[in-house]
């Protein structure tokens, strides 16, 4: 998914500079949702935005493709200020594909193909190109074109419906895919299915991906960078490891850390010499096993399986 960002001076696909935004500005109900926010999304990254409800996450991502216009500050997509005269927001919305929460609630066509084709057709793509775009989008999210094309989207499983909705955005061939809580309300099987799909889009198809998530376990597993929102500002930024090191601050923001990170912190507090930088189950296993086997070895030379697997 390589774009043509001629006048881009950096690798940033999206840049939010000093953005402020107030809902219902000028009314007694005015509420400032973003204050001096600066965020950069680089090409090819998988970035997760975390923060509790009302922290400004959704407001922020609606600035990425010009659905909301900042009160002050700038939003650049591919190096261009999207609110400058002469920039067509339609192009921006194609470049930055936004998948809302519960996107399957917005499915409405009679067939899967018609639904996925809706946006590209609306943008004036030719029938042949639409057809190709739909097939490709379905292939990318692992939906079998021949089996599903004429089915009603409403008779699919939850995970499939959501993938149809994502395919509808992918069919516009965006450069960046922004997903607002893509696994919200799904059962564990559906969550794994959709997360696997997103990872695949990133790793195999090179998409730049931004996702809003409430699951610290999930973002620890595969986000390359985290942006932590709190009270309408960016409170932290960095790798999952860097961010989860600041456990107390996160807890004070109404967020948490993965259970294994909390475990290692708890053990460190009790005097177990170990790193607090553990963020996955595998890492915790490797960090704890030597001490546990050593201790049990001293206690009794019991039987032991050498395999360290998970």
């Amino acid at each position: 998914m390589n774009g043509t960002m001629s006048d881009a001076t950096s690798d940033a696909v999206i840049e939010v500079r000093d953005v402020c935004y107030t809902y219902m500005r000028g009314t007694p109900l005015a509420r400032q949702a973003l204050t001096d926010v600066n965020v950069r999304i680089n090409r090819g990254e998988l970035v997760a935005i975390i923060g509790r409800t009302g922290s400004g996450k959704s407001t922020l991502i609606q600035h990425f493709n010009g659905l909301l216009k900042p009160d002050s500050g700038h939003v650049l997509v591919g190096g261009r200020d999207i609110w400058r005269k002469g920039v067509a927001l339609r192009d921006i919305r194609r470049q930055v594909g936004l998948v809302f929460q519960y996107p399957e609630h917005q499915l409405f066509e009679e067939t899967v193909v018609a639904d996925i084709a809706f946006a590209p057709r609306n943008m004036g793509m030719s029938q042949a190109n639409v057809d190709e775009a739909v097939r490709e989008a379905m292939r990318v999210v692992d939906l079998d074109y021949d089996a599903l094309c004429d089915r009603s989207p409403f008779e699919l499983s939850g995970g499939q419906k959501r993938r149809v909705a994502i395919a509808g955005v992918l069919a516009m061939r965006p450069e960046v895919l922004v997903l607002d809580e893509p696994t919200a309300g799904m059962d564990p099987r559906g969550r794994e299915e959709v997360l696997g799909e997103i990872r695949q889009l990133h790793e195999a198809h090179g998409y730049t991906i931004v996702l809003v998530s409430h699951s610290m376990e999930d973002v620890a597993r595969f986000a390359e960078r985290l942006v932590v929102m709190d009270g309408g500002t960016v409170a932290m930024e960095g790798s999952a490891r860097e961010v989860f090191r600041r456990r107390e601050e996160l807890v004070n923001m109404g967020l948490g850390v993965p259970q294994v990170t909390a475990l290692m912190a708890e053990l460190a507090a009790r005097g177990l010499p170990s790193t607090e930088d553990v963020i996955t189950v595998d890492e915790a296993l490797r960090a704890l096993l030597p001490a546990l086997l050593g201790a049990s070895g001293r206690a009794n030379e019991g039987e032991r399986e050498g395999e360290v697997g998970a």
Partner: peptide, 29 residues
């Protein structure tokens, strides 16, 4: 996973505090 690899943990912990207790007891911290 720890037990499968030979660590002498006996119960299935449900919370962070439970596993921390069990590990601490074994390694003596």
């Amino acid at each position: 996973a720890l037990r499968a690899a030979g660590a002498p943990l006996t119960r299935s912990p449900l919370t962070v505090a439970e596993l921390a207790d069990d590990v601490a007891a074994i390694v003596g911290v």
